[in-house]
Design a protein around this nucleic acid. Structure first.
Length: 567
DNA sequence: TCGGTCACGTA
DNA sequence: CGTACGTGACCGAG
């Protein structure tokens, strides 16, 4: 059945895959296409090992949840890499890869009594006379018949080839571009797997922690309301009489004014300074913490996102800015208080590792600063930087971070000047990014990701406004180059670990990616092997990623039964 | 019902 | 006046 289809497809060669809403699977090579079953996909993966091409990992999730695909070319992910931004639906991806303006993508008009739309004959072709994908196709008509599904898969192959050319062109200046495209694609696979697998949670422990903060689980809405009122009363007791809605910042501000506390806003860090001024401040801060747990990380959160002992959210491989992974369901912002509830299943442990001082090390690598690279040879690179600058370690750290983040306040100016003298290459790299941001000139990360700057807003209220906007864009540019490159390295690490676990047949899986931290759920007896893979995987990923071996990357690794046991 | 603002958890 | 994300409550416009 698939003989002609696969005749010329070898390991790593592109092979398109689509999944129709009704579950029909279509596979297409340059030569032919076929409707297949999921077992066929698994067999092709095992015997040939092609580079699977799809419009997006989410669009083939039913396959990815079953078949652990090794090689991928994710059109949406590569599109985001090459063209920046976040929108990456097929119509936009097609447009960009064909040199068309995405703003001219046709939209599907609602059915109109007097306009029956295109004749059915027109819908045979996926591409309209304007060169864009037909909106009827992108809206779902692509899946209507086997013939259309085949055309849709062929269109994906067409885009993949064009993207490959674009990536190859990029490689002249960004040698990592192709590797980045592949790693970002595989990271999308990992995202589907993370979403399906979830993070192991001991619900009983979680309930105990939440109960200790907000009280017992209410058994009715009346009880919930009473709990809420009691929380509020604990604050309002300290306030002058009169109704105040604690959930309304304006009213909180006026309450504070009535007790003699003047603030521009009521953010916690500001109120921290005023704890001693009036008892209501302390009560309010305590209320905020409890209210946060109750509303965002409380029983409702557990009920909504935890099933079968797993906390599940949806993952994206790349945000719209610098390219970090994102996750919903609070997976990336779970309060430290709740982490003791992240417990490995019986007979399992977590192998947990986080990258040490990743951003300054990445800066040393991507800028090619030999002096800063030399500092990365030590476990704590701020120590040699401090002695180089002739300042103490805390000052050196603040100076380096300030340079990377564009800090403008504080008294780091002196150290910043010394930084310029000691590490001119690294500082120049950051300054270039800052200037690009200020003038709205798009830039690319080390790995080739385009950082877009929207056209600067011409109608600023004032010169001062325009200046602060430009400064903000400058900081954004600095940060994006570092954060983005760090995200690229992190994903290389993650997909390397994933591949080696699969290659060694170890039934362990990555269950959390947290920007610079990797959490792997592993059978107890495989913990040592997994730890070795995680540690060595970093060296392997870094060796493939970095321009040379001058920068040392380090990970802090631990094997623990619960997440909070580490660190 | 929606987008904007404030606020806050994480890296 | 470090950036980024997701979430939830509230506001005011529609």
């Amino acid at each position: 059945m698939t003989d002609g289809l696969l005749a010329a497809v070898g390991r790593g060669d592109p092979l398109a895959l689509t999944v129709a809403p009704d579950g029909a699977l279509t596979v297409a090579s340059d030569a032919a296409s076929a409707e297949v079953e999921i077992d066929d996909v698994a067999r092709i993966e095992a015997t040939i090992g092609p580079r699977w091409v799809w419009w997006s990992a989410a669009s083939v999730a039913p396959v990815l949840e079953v078949v652990p695909v090794a090689r991928a070319w994710d059109l949406a992910a590569v599109h985001r890499l090459v063209h920046g931004g976040w929108r990456a639906e097929p119509a936009v991806v097609w447009a960009r890869s064909h040199g068309l303006d995405p703003d001219t993508v046709p939209v599907l008009r609602p059915p109109d009594l007097f306009d029956l739309g295109p004749a059915p004959a027109d819908l045979v072709e996926p591409v309209g006379p304007d060169g864009h994908l037909r909106p009827e196709w992108t809206a779902g008509e692509w899946a209507a018949t086997p013939a259309r599904r085949a055309r849709w898969a062929a269109a994906a192959l067409d885009v993949a080839a064009r993207q490959r050319d674009a990536v190859d062109s990029l490689a002249a200046i960004h040698p990592q571009a192709l590797a980045t495209a592949r790693a970002e694609s595989t990271a999308e696979v990992l995202c589907v797997e993370l979403g399906a697998g979830g993070l192991p949670i001991d619900v009983a422990v979680a309930e105990t922690i939440i109960g200790g903060i907000v009280g017992a689980r209410p058994r009715s809405t009346a009880e919930a309301d009473a709990q809420r009122a009691e929380r509020d009363a604990a604050v309002l007791r300290h306030a002058p009489p009169g109704r105040t809605d604690l959930r309304n910042p304006a009213q909180v501000r006026s309450l504070l004014r009535r007790v003699g506390v003047e603030v521009d806003d009521t953010r916690a860090w500001r109120l921290e300074q005023l704890r001693d001024v009036h008892p209501v401040v302390e009560a309010l801060l305590a209320w905020r913490r409890i209210e946060r747990t109750a509303t965002t990380y409380g029983y409702g959160w557990l009920d909504e996102h935890v099933r079968d002992g797993r906390l599940r959210g949806s993952w994206t491989g790349s945000d719209g800015a610098a390219g970090r992974m994102t996750a919903s369901a609070g997976l990336h912002s779970m309060p430290a208080d709740l982490r003791p509830a992240v417990v490995a299943e019986p007979g399992h442990v977590f192998v947990r590792a986080d990258l040490g001082q990743i951003e300054p090390r990445v800066l040393a690598a991507v800028s090619g600063d030999r002096s800063l690279a030399a500092a990365t040879r030590t476990d704590d690179m701020y120590a040699p930087v401090a002695s180089q600058l002739g300042v103490d370690r805390p000052t050196a750290k603040v100076a380096v971070l300030g340079a990377m983040y564009g800090q403008t306040t504080g008294h780091g100016a002196q150290a910043l000047r010394r930084l310029d003298a000691a590490y001119p290459v690294a500082m120049g790299y950051l300054r270039d990014a800052d200037e690009a941001g200020q003038v709205g000139r798009s830039i690319r990360t080390y790995g080739g990701r385009l950082i877009r700057f929207g056209s600067t807003n011409a109608n600023e209220v004032s010169e001062r406004d325009a200046r602060s906007r430009a400064a903000a864009m400058g900081r954004y540019g600095r940060n994006a180059m570092i954060q983005g490159a760090a995200a690229e390295l992190f994903k290389r690490w993650a997909v390397t670990v994933r591949a080696r676990l699969a290659g060694d047949g170890i039934p362990a899986s990555i269950v959390l990616c947290l920007h610079d931290e990797l959490l792997v759920h592993a059978p107890l007896d495989a913990a040592g092997a997994v730890a070795a893979i995680v540690a060595d995987g970093l060296q392997q990923a870094a060796a493939g990623w970095a321009p040379d071996d001058s920068v040392r990357f380090v990970a802090d690794l631990s094997v623990v039964p619960r997440w909070s046991d580490a660190k």
